[in-house]
Design a protein around this nucleic acid. Structure first.
Lengths: 199, 199
DNA sequence: GTCTATAGTTCGATAGAC
DNA sequence: GTCTATCGAACTATAGAC
């Protein structure tokens, strides 16, 4: 029984892994069930044993799992980092670039709306809870300590996520020898010189 | 004859307008020819009179026209702006937010690759020529004047485009009363405080 | 758990009437 | 220039054998 349960969840995890990679890379509409099956080396119909509720539900589960993963990771690296804002932001961007950041804007504005308008709203909430709030908390704490001047944390967090995406893409084109992590350290330095309170 | 030519190009422009709006909002794969026809109030088959070469070619033409439009606009506002870097960047971001910025990363990584790998390369070149090089020239000129310290202009331009996209999206959610243009002025101020040469 | 076969849809595109 | 009608391909999903 334990073995069977393990095997089942392991197979499911493999399906979710393959689906996640494809969905996040190319978007919901342009990934077919056959594409996912091909990656797993099975026929298209076999997918419906592991994902009996179809493509739409599969996408929802992939996203929910991804967001849970991001939230756990972010909270972990934030807790482990030094209590200064710069160190915490560095730990955050290091984590983000390691996770092969996804195009959140495409997910919300293209992928999700194809499923339903209510799901688009739900996805926005998930992204907010999993990826934005943990970082917002870091900024608010720094504000409370008097480390940064008055900013809108929600705005700054979005900037950080957008810049991380760009850094990873820029690094992948690799015309310049600047790693994503080093680039994001420079971005943080640049941002802090703008938002740090000067006495 | 002149009237007929005008009417034809006018009809074509209407088709390209509708296609551009949908393609840029939702991406290549999730926009159907029927969607475009619905916006125009005609049946799907009628589209093939104006776009006889099909969906793929329609997307290519839409993108080519959009990039030409962006290049012309950018070069115009740059030429009209004051010769200081801050004023030029402000004119650039004002222009960009007015054009309802598109998700360049989705275009390159999702839309274009569905058409062909060679088109993805072509699109990257078009984006580079139309949107990045004009702004890169501004940064290089400022570097030559000694206004900014050593940076990688290509990297900074990508940051600026990514942040502009985020600003417009953030503004559209409008939970906070910060207009895209005002927000980008603050971004520019923040970036300049990071990259300006201090003597 | 995976397969073959196929039903039911949707989409891109063409043909031909008007 | 737009319409109706339709073809062929691709996709989601189901049924049933193994």
């Amino acid at each position: 029984m334990t073995t069977e349960t393990f095997e089942i969840s392991h197979s499911r995890a493999r399906v979710l892994d393959a689906a996640e990679k494809l969905f996040m890379e190319r978007g919901y509409a342009s990934v077919t069930m056959r594409d996912i099956a091909d990656v797993l080396g099975v026929k298209q119909a076999a997918l419906y044993y592991h994902a009996p509720n179809g493509k739409e539900q599969l996408y929802r589960e992939v996203v929910a799992r991804h967001m849970a993963h991001q939230r756990e990771g972010l909270e972990k690296v934030i807790a482990a980092a030094a209590p200064e804002l710069e160190a915490q932001l560095g730990a955050i961007t290091d984590w983000l670039v390691e996770q092969a950041p996804v195009d959140l804007m495409r997910m919300v504005r293209s992928d999700a709306v194809q499923i339903s308008d209510t799901y688009a709203e739900e996805l926005i909430q998930q992204v907010d809870q999993a990826m934005m709030q943990p970082i917002i908390k870091v900024l608010r704490a720094a504000q409370a300590r008097g480390e940064v001047r008055r900013i809108i944390p929600e705005m700054v967090v979005g900037m950080l996520l957008a810049l991380t995406n760009w850094a990873v893409y820029f690094d992948s084109t690799s015309r310049f020898s600047v790693s994503s992590k080093v680039m994001m350290r420079q971005v943080i330095d640049l941002m802090l010189n703008g938002i740090i309170e000067r006495n």
